[in-house]
Design a protein around this nucleic acid. Structure first.
Lengths: 167, 167
DNA sequence: CACTGACAGTAGGACATCCAACTATCCAAC
DNA sequence: GTTGGATAGTTGGATGTCCTACTGTCAGTG
C-alpha cells in the first residue's frame, strides 16, 4: 500500500471512503460528478488565464462568439441566455460589462418593444478574433483536449446533457 | 439538413462554426472544454437542489465530508484547501458559514499557533450522513453517472487532471 | 375593447471563487 | 540571538451565478 501521506488522487480516495461506508452503489456516480467539478475548475482556470490580457472572462467571451457567428452580429438577450443555458440576469450582467468596454451595444428590437438586441461592435469582433486565436493555440489544441480523449469526452457528456434536457 | 431554428446541440453547432472558420485543429478541443463547462453546470445544479433543504452548498458539503472521513474529525484549513483545490479564502468563507450554522468549530492547533483546526461537530456529522444518503439516492446512483459511462468519464478526467498537475 | 396570462429584461440580495495585501507565526541561517 | 524567508489565515474588492420580485409589453380570450 502507498504511503498514507503521499499525494494521491483525492477522488480515488473519496471513492474508497464511499465504498468503505457501505455506499458502493453510489461510489462511481460520486466519483464521476466530483471529477467533473474538478476538471471544469482546471479547464476554466486555463481559459481565463489566456483571456485575462483581453479583459474578458469566459462568460463574456462566449457571448461575443455567439454574436460573432450570428448572421447580423446581433441577438436578443433571451436567445443568448437560451444558447448558453444561463439565467437572464447573468446575460444582463455580461452584456453590461461588454457594453461598458465598448465591445457590444444594446439596440431596441424593430417590432417587439420588450426585446433588447445586443449588437456586436467592430472592437468586439476584433477582440473575438484575437482572443480565439490565442485560445486555439494555447488551450484548445492542447493534447489532453484535442486527442481521441477529447472526442470521447464530448460524446459522453453529450449523452449526459441530452438526458438532462440540455438540448 | 435539419431545420435551422430547431433545437440542436449548441456545442455541435459551435464545433461546426469553428471548422467553418478554418479552426479545424482546435474544434475538438473547444467542443471538449465547452462540454465540460456545460455538464458541470448541470451536475452542480442537480446536487445543489438536493442540498438546499439542508442549507448547505456543495462547497460546504465537501468540507463536511472531508472532516467526516478524517480520523479525528478535525483538519487544518490549509489541508482542506489543498484537498479540495480551492483558494484559502474560499475555505475561510465556507468554514465561516459552517461555523455560523453550528456544524463545525474552529480550534487552535496544539503546537503550531499559525494553524487553525476545523472540528466537525455532532450536528455537522449528522447533517453529512443525512445529506449523503439523499445525494446517493437522488444523484449519484442515477444511470447517467453510475453506468460504464461514469466510469469512463472518471478515467478520462483523471488523465486530464493528472496532466494538469492536480495530484 | 378590456383582461389576463405569458414573455423580456432589470434591480437587489445571497453565495462562491479568485486575487492582492496584510498580520502573525515558525524556522533556518548567519 | 537576530534576521529574513516561508507558511497560515483573514480582510477587502472584483466577478459570475442564481433566485425573487418587479416593470413593460405582447397576444389571445371573452
Amino acid at each position: 500500500m502507498p504511503a498514507p501521506d503521499h499525494p494521491r488522487d483525492p477522488i480515488a480516495e473519496a471513492r474508497r471512503q464511499w465504498a468503505a461506508h457501505g455506499w458502493e452503489a453510489a461510489a462511481d456516480g460520486m466519483a464521476a460528478l466530483t471529477s467533473l467539478m474538478r476538471a471544469q475548475q482546471i479547464a476554466l482556470a486555463r481559459v481565463e488565464a489566456v483571456l485575462r490580457p483581453y479583459d474578458v472572462t469566459f462568460a463574456r467571451y462566449e457571448v461575443l462568439m455567439l454574436l460573432y457567428f450570428s448572421r447580423t452580429g446581433a441577438l436578443p438577450m433571451t436567445k443568448i441566455g437560451n444558447r448558453l443555458q444561463v439565467h437572464p440576469t447573468s446575460v444582463t450582467n455580461a452584456v453590461d460589462r461588454l457594453e461598458s468596454a465598448g465591445l457590444v451595444r444594446r439596440t431596441p428590437h424593430p417590432t417587439d418593444r420588450r426585446t433588447t438586441l445586443v449588437q456586436l461592435l467592430p472592437k468586439g469582433r476584433e477582440l473575438a478574433t484575437k482572443a480565439t486565436k490565442e485560445l486555439n493555440a494555447q488551450v484548445f489544441t492542447s493534447p489532453d483536449l484535442s486527442s481521441d480523449r477529447g472526442t470521447t469526452l464530448v460524446e459522453l457528456l453529450a449523452e449526459m446533457r441530452h438526458e438532462a434536457g440540455d438540448f
